[in-house]
Design a protein around this nucleic acid. Structure first.
Lengths: 208, 208, 208, 208
DNA sequence: TATGAATGAGTGTTCATTCAT
DNA sequence: TATGAATGAACACTCATTCAT
């Protein structure tokens, strides 16, 4: 009977589970953003999530796993959203502009995540060699795809190499985000940054 | 024997000190590059440097201090060199090209340092709040200086904001270096990267 | 459904309880035998018994209590059986032979139990001071009783002290069981062991 | 120079090291004897040894390793001593008597060790399968050697199997030691036990 | 009765740092 | 200066036990 009742409420249970899983994920992003992965303590995360230390281990294998899951989950969500939106845009030029503004917008909508991504993703790339978030590669490939299509359409310069350009552009975005994160009172607002980076990048890519 | 030599040549002592200081710095760069700052053990560094653990504390306040000194020392050297070389170049366009190739060239000449800079500098920027390497700001300002002069000379677009552009360019360079570091067998060699990034950046900055 | 049945047959409930109690006991013996008491997890026992972790606490106070109950229950059963069988034997010499073969036979009939008894009983004797299984003392006293009667009948040597001899004999049996348990492929089979130990012990105890 | 001086005092250094190693070993035996291996805390051992917790890890790989080293070191010492003493005895009968009294005497001379051996050695035999103390096998083989020689000389019964008998005898000794350890006030003193066990065992092994 | 998610106290181990030599 | 043995604070993780359902 118990079981049946539970089976009848699978969704509710799932929601409950997810809500705790989500709670931990959110708390972790916040704590990691504040202190960095290595200086963050499990007990801090637990406190932030309003649960017991041990509970974390019901949802995550270990501390590393939390970071991995942040990447997986959040990058995936962002990737899916970005993909579907990009599909609705025809012009590679507009796609690129959209990509740039969408990525930088994360700074406002999900600052903690951005702080974790800019700093910890890079660390993890280098040291958690078992798991290099694949979604990140896909994310970069959205960029190279845009560029490639732009070249095909004769909008972007033919000598631009998408495989390099995607890293140049992502790096540029990253550089700006680091600035926005670190500067106590940034002189330049988000819109200015979007415009500048778009302008610098896009004009450079345009066939003249 | 050691002692005798020391008594005879005070200067030599200083040299010895420096040589040991240098040894530790070099060893640290190597070890940090391999394992990252947090996973690197003082004992590893000591072993790599061929000295005792305790000796490190005669030259550095603590583990953080080693990282700080890497930034200070190496950034300063690179900065000084870069500055003097840039002064010999008139054209801001050429200056920028030189900056880019000089920075990326570090990957070949001092790979360990680059690995530490790309990963740990970012971390430290965010978490070692006591010390945010000033030299790094100066390094970026070389870039904004070039751009500003380029604007003044009517070479670069007037609407480019040097304060933003310097971070865009540095970020782009950084993005490429991360790629070169992480990719087991990079598809693009250093020269290709220099050309691509220069092309993308510079053309973008050129007044049409 | 469950409830209905329960309401109808109170006795059945008791049976159910016992059957679950038994399930847990059996599962525990198996798990303890495999991993030892300390390395065994409540969750393992629950899984082995096919019930939930929490259910165990409806039948046992705590983990220690399971071990205690294994001793109480199984020793009691074995004791009762052994007692009644020994009563049917007149000759102390034959009684001793029977005791030995009966004890060693447990290795075949209830190997898990033997593994737990030989290892954990000793531990518990020393460390679970709250409960030193009384049945075990009674078990040993079966031996001293046999010896005493043998002395009275002039079969065993008068200088043999039953209080010491019972431990010597039990120790010898224990030593053999440890061998049988630990040796991957014992060179000597159970019967050989029974013969040898009987021969060594009994001949030594016989008045010449 | 430092090094030379040290090399000159290798013995002293070794002594120092050994004294700390020994301190930890002794402290561990005491603490393990009191609480059993699993209930013993590293911090207890450290406190008992008058050192810091971390120091233990300079001399032992981990907690298990301490137990292993107790077995290795102490069994080896006892084995060597026993061996050399047994070699001076001709008569297998006297050798057996000596073995028995020597083993039981450990109860007086090194009670803590005996408490650890009787309880933890058995546990470790079963669970630390990576390391089953070889010395223990050699120890048992001293017994089978004695019996074998006794058979060859026509002193012991030809049908006694040394491989079984050694375990019977060791088990008997073990059973007595467990009694001496556990009984708050043993009714039988060590000498009585030695006599009884010798009498029971030896008479049984003697050819009549 | 039965469940199993949640708890949180408890501990082995690491490693930056110190300091007697 | 140089050493490296010693220190001990710090922390991730486990698991027996509880309790709301």
């Amino acid at each position: 009977m118990e079981k049946k009742r539970r089976k009848g409420r699978t969704k509710a249970v799932t929601e409950d589970v997810h809500s705790k899983y989500e709670k931990i994920l959110r708390a972790s992003i916040k704590v990691f953003a504040q202190n960095g992965f290595h200086r963050s303590k499990i007990s801090q995360i637990a406190k932030e999530a309003g649960i017991a230390d041990g509970t974390i281990y019901l949802y995550f294998k270990n501390k590393d796993d939390i970071l991995i899951k942040i990447f997986e989950d959040r990058l995936e969500k962002n990737l899916a959203e970005l993909k579907s939106k990009l599909e609705k845009i025809e012009d590679p030029y507009e796609q690129l502009k959209f990509f740039i503004s969408h990525h930088l917008a994360l700074f406002d909508t999900n600052r903690g995540l951005i702080e974790v991504l800019t700093v910890e993703l890079r660390m993890s790339n280098k040291f958690m060699k078992e798991y290099v978030p694949q979604r990140f590669g896909e994310y970069l490939n959205l960029l190279s795809g845009i560029i490639r299509r732009g070249k095909d359409k004769g909008i972007f310069r033919p000598d631009v190499m998408p495989g390099v350009a995607k890293r140049v552009i992502y790096g540029a975005l990253d550089g700006i985000l680091v600035y926005l994160i670190l500067a106590p009172k940034p002189k330049y607002d988000l819109n200015t940054c979007v415009d500048q980076i778009t302008s610098i990048m896009v004009s450079g890519l345009l066939k003249k």
